[in-house]
Design a protein around this nucleic acid. Structure first.
Length: 203
DNA sequence: CCTCTAACCTATTCATTAA
DNA sequence: TTAATGAATAGGTTAGAGG
């Protein structure tokens, strides 16, 4: 609400999005929808976004978190219990493939990709401000930019792993560089190499 | 302090598209 | 048909609001 004047760091563009606060009414609708279908497709999420006036990406995150916390329980119903006989074994639910359609694949132009890759080389973990600026620059929703960075990082790590495997099992102790050694970015933007584990140091 | 949970992450899998 | 890559998943971590 007030100005965010928290930039006494060198690179001020590395913060996460501010936390969303759902109202009770919004939560009621979300939970109700979740209980009916914990894996909503894009259309449902869009509709929800409109209904509770929230970005679709926040709704996607909410469903992800909810599924992780309560793996969807089959029978939540101390109330509204209807016809849940659970007679023999529950069916393998093969016809569950009627998963709603997912979001249409985004096609990036070469110039958009050039911008993204350039940003990735400078900082593979852009904060919300940086992502939003990129999104505006290339004309794509911020949520797509975030997904793009996630995919890029994952495949970057995968590629690095394969290189380690391709070496002789003998002296494999000193591969270290090779990939990202070429860039400057020695300031702090290099890959943490193990990201999470080493990030919680003294914080 | 502690709890709850949005935001974020990696690793993997599913799915679409261009070659 | 396949390689590349965007979208979704499971599951774990980080951090902000509030008890």
């Amino acid at each position: 609400v007030a100005e965010d004047n928290s930039s006494h760091k060198m690179v001020g563009t590395n913060h996460r999005r501010s936390r969303t606060k759902f109202t009770e009414d919004q939560l009621k609708i979300l939970i109700n929808t979740f209980n009916q279908k914990p894996y909503p497709g894009y259309a449902t999420k869009q509709k929800l976004a409109l209904e509770i006036n929230t970005e679709e990406s926040r709704i996607q995150i909410w469903f992800q978190n909810r599924r992780a916390r309560f793996g969807f329980q089959k029978t939540p119903g101390p109330k509204t219990l209807e016809s849940s006989q659970s007679h023999g074994q529950d069916q393998p639910d093969m016809e569950l493939q009627s998963r709603e359609a997912r979001r249409c694949r985004t096609i990036y132009s070469t110039s958009q990709l050039r911008t993204l890759i350039e940003a990735f080389m400078k900082n593979p973990y852009p904060g919300i401000d940086c992502r939003e600026q990129l999104a505006k620059e290339i004309g794509v929703p911020e949520s797509r930019v975030q997904i793009w960075f996630q995919n890029r990082r994952s495949r970057f790590h995968l590629q690095r792993k394969r290189e380690v495997v391709s070496l002789e099992p003998e002296d494999q102790g000193k591969i270290s560089e090779g990939l990202q050694g070429a860039e400057d970015t020695q300031n702090g933007t290099n890959f943490p190499s193990n990201s999470h584990s080493s990030r919680a140091r003294t914080w």
